[in-house]
């Protein structure tokens, strides 16, 4: 069975800025896979390449066994795409939007009407078929987008930041629907996200940073690989404190965004020792089990949020939204 996505040495540049840098990975059929990364990490560019919106510049990609360059139409037939920006025509009704989509994918009218009924029921919008999209809430629109993308029975569903703009309830519905699609229809689901808890629900994740893969694996395995517990110390002079801790305990703390970080097994035993050793310097000290953010920090040396480098092309509003998430 061919892989759902087989990407080799994929590089994409906008002018002289490299957005995706020599990326190689394989996603198996039936997986629920997430690309996790802050804005500017290259995941949306990768999404655009995989969704065939922009041409593949360098490297090779095969989707469900079809070469992305040579066999574009075959790739497009197998793909369901949900963009971050809504793609519905607001002046048209829910049903009309689905009809247009079905015709673009060459569905016959009997198939189309059967699929419309089926999918509107699946996303719980049967009674809204005749309503114009402009009268629907954001959560409902996203459900119509999902129905639209699944109309032609794609084998691979690609979603770019699918939770953006959804309230927590709608988010839960979205994930319920995605799991249902995967379990019932065997559809491979690949999404991008900047939300750590969302990535945690995927079977496997790829953490992206500056266009490269910083980590790839199951969320649990990645967390386990970080090692023990994460200890974070806030202080006025992080560099000096870090040096002092290193000298005194022969460990290697790191300074990340003005805080001293230390990863150790049995982290709770370290707290009193550190506080006793440097009572004046330590303002706050926290202990946590490793999260995906710790994985990100361990692999990239940067904090997940607040890392502005490589973010120039993103509008300010989005960055603020990210900090909240």
């Amino acid at each position: 069975m061919p892989a759902a996505i087989h990407a080799q040495y994929v590089t994409h540049r906008y002018g002289d800025r490299t957005a995706v840098d020599d990326l190689t990975l394989e996603i198996a059929e039936g997986e629920l896979f997430a690309f996790l990364g802050p804005n500017g990490s290259g995941k949306t560019t990768l999404f655009r390449v995989l969704s065939t919106l922009i041409p593949l510049q360098e490297g090779d990609v095969a989707i469900l066994g079809h070469d992305l360059r040579r066999d574009m139409t075959a790739v497009r037939r197998q793909l369901g795409v949900v963009f971050q920006a809504p793609s519905l025509d607001k002046k048209l009704t829910v049903g009309e939007n689905l009809t247009h989509q079905g015709r673009l994918y060459g569905l016959s009218s009997s198939e189309l009407s059967a699929r419309k009924t089926e999918l509107l029921a699946a996303v719980g919008l049967t009674d809204r078929e005749r309503d114009r999209v402009e009268t629907l809430s954001g959560g409902m629109r996203r459900r119509v987008e999902l129905a639209k993308s699944m109309l032609h029975r794609p084998r691979l569903l690609l979603l770019d930041e699918p939770s953006t703009g959804l309230d927590p309830g709608a988010r839960i519905d979205l994930w319920k629907y995605l799991r249902q699609v995967r379990e019932r229809d065997g559809v491979t689901i690949v999404l991008t996200t900047h939300l750590l808890d969302e990535a945690d629900r995927a079977d496997r994740i790829a953490i992206m940073h500056h266009g490269r893969l910083a980590a790839l694996g199951q969320p649990d395995a990645l967390r386990a690989a970080v090692g023990g517990d994460a200890i974070t110390i806030k202080t006025d002079h992080p560099d000096e404190l870090s040096k002092s801790i290193a000298e005194r305990f022969t460990v290697q703390p790191a300074v990340i965004d003005g805080a001293v970080r230390l990863e150790q097994h049995e982290g709770h035993q370290w707290i009193p020792r550190l506080v006793e050793a440097f009572p004046a310097e330590i303002q706050t000290i926290t202990l946590g089990k490793p999260t995906l953010e710790d994985v990100f920090i361990a692999r990239t040396g940067h904090r997940f949020f607040g890392d502005a480098s490589g973010d120039e092309d993103q509008p300010k509003k989005k960055r603020r939204g990210l900090a909240r998430g």
Binding site: H100, R103, L104, L107, H152
Partner: peptide, 28 residues
Amino acid sequence: MSTLATSSPPAWPAVFTLAQRELVRFFR
């Protein structure tokens, strides 16, 4: 499970549907 669409690209239905959409939007 296979995809529903046939192998030839759905060209004319696409032309028709996009032209129709222009008119529907216009009249709305």
